[in-house]
């Protein structure tokens, strides 16, 4: 039945998945071209010292991309479920309700993590042809919160979307915005390195939140 639930999510989201994958995959040649282009203009040694001296991060254009991906993915997964309350169909399946929701969330977060992970690794190893690990390591230390924000945004978007009462939806949205803001407080490369446990905590918590709204949906809470 896990396969059936994954199948449903796959049919629903495959084109979006393809699009997100393409954006992330496409970013790799973009970053490499951008880097080699700068190398050509400034010369490698000079550009290296610029990167180190000015704390330059050439993959910083990635900052809000995982966030957007998580947001769009979460909304695309749940909005169809909320149209005409068709989530009732899903909850009526002869399968434990919490597990059904959990599996839907696992499908979403799993595919996001896969896309982030695979494209991130490919980017890391491709960059390591041109740059020393000290620089790439620093860049990815800075990028980790961006990816984690994407994951948190996914769960929070699902939470806001499932919530049946509009007033509560608004409150949840504000809370979600505040939580997401925490991921983008970094000013320099390493400034967020001690915040990782906080981010992991936020992700684990925000994974629980959608269940609260599912409970409320199930109870038929209304204004």
């Amino acid at each position: 039945m896990t396969r059936a639930i994954f199948y449903k999510e796959w049919i629903k989201l495959r084109w979006l998945l393809l699009a997100i994958s393409l954006v992330f995959a496409g970013s790799i040649p973009y970053f490499i071209l951008n880097l080699t282009n700068k190398f050509r203009f400034a010369g490698k040694p000079h550009f290296w010292s610029v990167i180190v001296g000015k704390d330059l991060n050439l993959i910083s254009e990635l900052t809000y991309i995982p966030l957007l991906a998580g947001l769009i993915f979460g909304l695309s997964q749940i909005v169809p479920e909320m149209q005409k309350k068709s989530l009732k169909l899903t909850l009526h399946l002869p399968h434990p309700e919490k597990l059904t929701i959990l599996k839907m969330l696992l499908f979403g977060s799993g595919t996001l993590v896969s896309i982030f992970g695979i494209t991130g690794l490919v980017l890391y190893f491709t960059l390591s042809i041109y740059l020393p690990l000290q620089i790439i390591g620093a860049w990815f230390t800075a990028a980790l919160p961006w990816y984690l924000a994407g994951l948190a945004a996914y769960f929070l978007a699902v939470w806001v979307c499932i919530e049946p009462v509009w007033k509560q939806k608004a409150i949840n949205t504000l809370l979600a915005i505040a939580l997401i803001m925490l991921f983008f407080k970094g000013a320099s490369t390493y400034s967020l390195q001690y915040a990782t446990p906080l981010y992991i905590g936020i992700i684990l918590l925000s994974m629980c939140f959608p269940f609260y709204s599912v409970f409320r949906f199930k109870e038929g809470v209304q204004q």
Binding site: P45, H46, W48, S49, V52, D55, P132, Q134, I135, A138, T189, Y190, Q193
Partner: peptide, 24 residues
């Protein structure tokens, strides 16, 4: 925290201007 990469200049280059090395 900064990146663990720094330039090692030639301290006795005999030049007025310090030159950036090709390595870090």
């Amino acid at each position: 925290k900064q990146m663990d990469l720094n330039p090692m200049f030639e301290s006795m280059s005999g030049r007025v201007q310090i030159e950036s090395p090709d390595d870090l």
